[in-house]
Nucleic acid binder design. Structure first.
Lengths: 238, 238
DNA sequence: CGAGCACTTGAAAGATTTCAAGTCCAGTGG
DNA sequence: CCACTGGACTTGAAATCTTTCAAGTGCTCG
């Protein structure tokens, strides 16, 4: 499935200018308990489609995405793939792991990560209640998001899933300006995230384009009628 | 509300047979950190189909199931329902909530709960690293289980979901002896947990019965060929 | 220019749902 | 004690949604 998947094992001591975090519970804020970790962080670039960590690997690092997009992946024996989530600039990865990683993580496009050794995270947390609490909250938020996806996959139709996904991207993509989405991930990633096939994703998008709800140009999608998407996401309209 | 499926019976020394979800990671301490809470607990019986907490309610209590079965529920506007998980004796509920409950929780059958005020949990955690750590682990385990369900709902067929579900019940139901399951939940609960319709659940069960993999008598299901179920759960066989 | 890849689209197949009857009990009231 | 009734469960047939299979487009890159 992934042609070339390699570990990001090299790390450089480069410092990368840190882009201002988008306000979101999952993202670090100015005076964040996570700031303590910064001195132990290293900056790591990872190329498109390369692996950041493997499913079942011992969780030795936590990451913060500085730029780019990361997907978390689980594979079934026969190759069926489920993408747990997409992580954007500012999002955290691996902080909720418990010993081993639940999912593999791969770069959707070229990404830059800030990497923190887990043993430092744990050591700091042991003497810092704010940090420990923060870690717990991070995990709780991940759980809440996973549960929302559970409803999506268990009970929503293809159109509802696509509409929900586009609305989520509209909120989360740092580059989403003027309701134009430049999706970093391909159709097949979207399909594997939403529990659909790539063809179904295409067809639903084409339908929304014909309807006038979207304008589509490859990876660039302009949302022309956000209200229609919202109705569709909630099942009020098809 | 976040439900946590992990046994905590050690701290009361009760005799429920237990199989920790993730044995290697749940380092069982001599006395569970949760034991601290016991002095603040009250015992609460809840009748079948009655609500324990509502989705979106302020999370004022955490619970441990003493006996019976609880379901966590999310409803869509139009009535579609997703059951997040079923909780059995020993399982924890609400410890991973973040301010408000993500799910409603309802008694599947008559249940007895042990209830702890959240403010006590938080207060104790603030001065007790072991407890804080325990709470984080509880949340991480919930997250891991939610992620496993994500693959189930996103990528598994109806037969695979039913087979996986039966195997999970075989592990988790305290009354599962000699491969006989006395399921506390009805077909419609199972359907809403697996993202299927009640009819599909019936048909798959009927198919497994005709095949000789199961014997079915209403809520009592005997697993005659566990290996077949395992193959079916992983997609090796249909 | 040609190859490869991502994306699109159409048509047929397939899985699951929907609609529509039943069946089977458990609990109730005669 | 037994018929009755409502709810849970089953089953069949048709409808529907999504997938599968197949083919074609368009773009990028060497």
């Amino acid at each position: 499935m992934q042609a070339t998947t390699q570990r990001a094992e090299r790390f450089t001591g480069n410092t990368v200018a840190q882009r201002p975090a988008i306000p979101s519970l999952l993202k670090p804020t100015e005076r964040d308990a996570l700031a303590l970790l910064e001195q132990f962080g290293t900056t790591v670039p990872v190329h498109r489609d390369h692996e950041i960590c493997g499913e079942g690997d011992k969780a030795e690092y936590c990451y913060r995405i500085l730029s780019g997009c990361v997907r978390t992946v689980r594979l079934m024996e026969d190759g069926r793939r489920q993408i747990g989530e997409f992580l954007m600039a500012g999002d955290l990865l691996g902080f909720d792991a418990l010993g081993i990683y639940d999912f593999a993580a791969e770069a959707v496009c070229d990404v830059v990560l800030r990497r923190y050794p887990r043993r430092m995270v744990d050591a700091l947390a042991e003497n810092n209640f704010a940090l420990t609490r923060r870690l717990r909250d991070i995990t709780s938020i991940s759980l809440r998001m996973a549960n929302t996806r559970l409803v999506m996959l268990g009970r929503k139709t293809a159109s509802e899933r696509i509409a929900s996904f586009l609305l989520e991207m509209l909120e989360r993509l740092p580059t989403a300006r003027a309701n134009v989405l430049d999706l970093p991930m391909g159709r097949s990633d979207i399909a594997d995230h939403l529990g659909l096939t790539i063809e179904t994703v295409c067809r639903v998008l084409a339908h929304l384009r014909r309807e006038g709800t979207l304008s589509i140009d490859r990876s660039s999608i302009a949302v022309r009628d956000e209200a229609a998407l919202q109705q569709m996401a909630s099942g009020t309209r098809h």
